[in-house]
Design a protein around this nucleic acid. Structure first.
Lengths: 98, 98
DNA sequence: CGCCTGTCTCGACGTCCGTCGAATCAGACA
DNA sequence: TGTCTGATTCGACGGACGTCGAGACAGGCG
């Protein structure tokens, strides 16, 4: 793996490297309708609204989720393509020779 | 995903969230013989020995690699089981409903 | 035994991160 | 228009992180 690829992929792993964000990602990705409102995410944690918003921004900037405002509420949905990329990287790494 | 699971898995993602460690992990996991010497890892980076050693310790403590001293040299090898766990988490997250 | 190479530990420094409170923006509704 | 709720941005604080230099430890070899 070239250094440039590592520089591109590492931020995505980094974004998942916080327990709160990992759980947020899980909730977003496993939402039945494919999307979930911030107002449904916030009460699941013992954290203030701004803090959850900050974590969601981190996930957004890592390219892991998309956000869309509809009326008063903001809905988040996962981006499966990048998740597949990360998973492929992890399964590809073990040496096949053995 | 329960909060406890997130607390357990997040550190592994966090360890991969640094470009240097991600590349180290890639080099270790893709080693032909299944293991690789620190002396082969260090010159691949523009970093000092202690810094590489620190990153390797981080990967070790995250459970991603094992280290073994043989004579003068220390060899690192990947732990495929945890890599499979992380990959499964990423592929499992997208909602199947569509 | 003394030295040399390879690796790790320790202490320090600057920067980034997670969290909060206060303030701000976006939209709905009377 | 005014106000209320939901979500974000801003500024600040404490703690963790990445990096380095210096020093310590492990093992091989004269």
């Amino acid at each position: 793996m070239p250094a440039e690829a590592a520089a591109v992929l590492a931020p995505a792993f980094k974004a998942l490297g916080d327990p709160v964000r990992l759980q947020l990602m899980s909730m977003i990705a496993s939402a039945e309708s494919g999307e979930i409102c911030v107002c449904d995410l916030t009460p699941a944690f013992d954290l203030t609204g701004p803090t959850i918003s900050h974590h969601l921004k981190t996930l957004r900037e890592a390219g892991l989720v998309d956000a869309e405002r509809r009326g008063t509420w903001v809905y988040y949905r996962a981006r499966p393509s990048i998740l597949r990329q990360l998973a492929a990287l992890l399964t590809a790494t073990p040496a096949p020779s053995a």
